[in-house]
Simulated assay, not measured.
Amino acid sequence: PALSASLGCDAVGVPAQYGFRLMSHLPRAGCVFADADQWWWIVPSGSDLDLDWPEQASYATGAYVPSGRPRLIHAPDSRTPYTPPIPLFLMVCQVTGVVPSWDSSGRPRAVPAP
């Protein structure tokens, strides 16, 4: 209740094996939830627009995650629950071995690494 989520909430899930690495390399993390299989990062609604998240990532509109009962493992230092989506996208691409690229319209998209 003390956090402002005025931009709505979606969630990006990544396999748990990448969780600690992502957390240690992101400049700022918002609320992060985890269960045995996935770590879920809260992002502003619409963070999937113009971003083609790698196949290993799951995107949950409305932050309704398809797993059991993930628990909060990281609370943000600020009054916002969000992890910035662009740095998260770039880090998810890096840890999953997917090269992020931008198409001619200027929209980023992820492509499999050669």
Rank of each mutant, 00 (worst) to 15 (best):
S105W: 01
T61G: 08
L72D: 02
M91D: 08
P76A: 07
Q56N: 02
L90G: 04
F33T: 03
A29C: 14
V92H: 07
A113E: 11
Q56S: 07
Q56L: 11
V14R: 03
A34M: 13
I42E: 03
R107W: 07
A5F: 07
W40K: 03
Q38N: 12
D50K: 07
G97L: 11
G8R: 05
A110L: 11
H74D: 00
M23F: 00
P85Q: 00
S24D: 13
I86G: 00
P112T: 15
L22E: 02
V32D: 03
R69T: 11
D50R: 11
T83K: 04
D77P: 07
R21K: 14
Q38P: 01
R69E: 12
S24C: 04
D103W: 09
T80D: 01
Q38H: 13
V32G: 04
P87H: 02
F20E: 08
Q38F: 09
T80P: 00
P27L: 12
P85Y: 06
D37S: 11
W53P: 06
Y64A: 07
S101C: 14
R107I: 14
C9F: 03
F33P: 00
P54R: 02
A63D: 04
P54L: 03
P84D: 06
P76V: 07
V98R: 08
R109N: 11
P85T: 00
V14Q: 04
L90A: 11
V98Y: 14
P1G: 14
C9V: 15
Q94N: 14
H74S: 01
D10L: 07
C93P: 12
F89K: 01
A29L: 11
T61K: 13
D103A: 11
F89L: 05
P114L: 13
A57E: 00
Q94F: 03
T83I: 08
R109D: 03
D52I: 08
W40D: 01
Y82G: 05
P87D: 01
